[in-house]
């Protein structure tokens, strides 16, 4: 994007004969591009360059990382958490998205309920889960009272607590794109399918689900990439071994070992980019969006 715009901005002489109509959109996006470049891309690049340039040009940090057993464990744990959370938000979020997509008069209310967590800080929500999931917390007390348990389960300070809390925090990111994709599906398609002999499950499986895939993919992508960077929630509700990549990065930042922190950040960023690229390839996010836009 920047390449397309820079010449127009830097060489006004050459653009003098250019059609103004073509130039205007470029000029309109230019401030945003410059803003992103100056305030986002450049600082990120500067930060990442520390992984290669500190103290002198070197690959030593990457070599250290490759042989760092702690890093391997944490990276695996982070990826696993991300997978579980993504699957959890998908399974729980899809039905909610369907409800949201079908709602008419209840829509504003449902939207507020779905978005409510957005207005509460991650910190407060994580503390709320501490209170709920504890051995004497609401969940355990309720299960005990119903006779489903005879002694309290340990949920808090385990990976399960991390998964529950993260799924809760990230659910809106899964629900909203799916609901949006579902809303864009022509309702007569489901009718047509039923009229052609498809039962409710077949309609869902063969029509609704495939047509909502652009939203599902967008949701998965969002949740996956966001959960890669989670830090506060695992720190608060996780168990002794629930360390995430972000926690490791924060540790190194606090230790003022910014070169290694930058190396870890580069790995985190690369992981996110690889995932996005895989999605682009495997599911053709672009074509899918075109399809749903019909």
């Amino acid at each position: 994007m920047s390449e397309a715009i820079a010449p127009a901005l830097l060489a006004p002489g050459r653009t003098a004969g250019m059609n103004w109509r073509r130039l205007v959109p470029l000029l309109l996006v230019a401030p945003l591009v410059l803003f992103m470049l100056a305030l986002y891309a450049l600082p990120v690049l500067a930060m990442l360059s520390r992984s290669l340039l500190e103290p002198a040009p070197t690959l030593a940090h990457y070599a250290e990382l490759a042989g760092d057993e702690v890093f391997h464990r944490i990276f695996t744990n982070t990826l696993w958490t991300t997978l579980v959370v993504t699957a959890g938000t998908l399974v729980l979020g899809y039905p909610v998205a369907m409800g949201l997509a079908r709602a008419r008069t209840l829509l504003p209310l449902l939207l507020i309920i779905v978005l409510l967590p957005f207005w509460t800080s991650v910190l407060v929500r994580s503390y709320a889960w501490m209170v709920l999931l504890g051995r004497h917390g609401l969940v355990n007390e309720a299960l005990l009272a119903m006779g489903m348990l005879d002694r309290p389960l340990r949920i808090l300070n385990t990976p399960l607590a991390v998964h529950i809390a993260m799924v809760h925090i990230l659910l809106p990111y899964m629900i909203l794109p799916i609901a949006n994709a579902l809303r864009q599906i022509d309702p007569s398609l489901a009718r047509a399918a039923a009229g052609l002999g498809a039962g409710p499950w077949a309609v869902f499986r063969q029509v609704t689900l495939p047509l909502s895939m652009p939203g599902v993919m967008a949701g998965i992508l969002l949740v996956f990439v966001l959960s890669l960077g989670f830090y506060i929630t695992p720190a608060l509700v996780g168990g002794p071994r629930d360390m995430t990549l972000s926690m490791l990065i924060a540790q190194r930042v606090e230790q003022l070992d910014w070169a290694y922190a930058a190396t870890l950040s580069a790995v985190l960023l690369a992981t996110a980019l690889v995932i996005i690229a895989i999605f682009q390839r495997a599911f053709g996010v672009g074509t899918a969006f075109r399809m749903s836009a019909r």
Binding site: D186, R191, A192, A194, G195, L196, P200, M291
Partner: peptide, 19 residues
């Protein structure tokens, strides 16, 4: 239910499955 009636149906907007 509709899917058990065995009736052919054509809609105004065609309702072809785009996928």
């Amino acid at each position: 239910p509709a899917h058990r009636r065995n009736i052919g149906m054509v809609f105004q907007n065609y309702a072809l499955f785009p996928h």
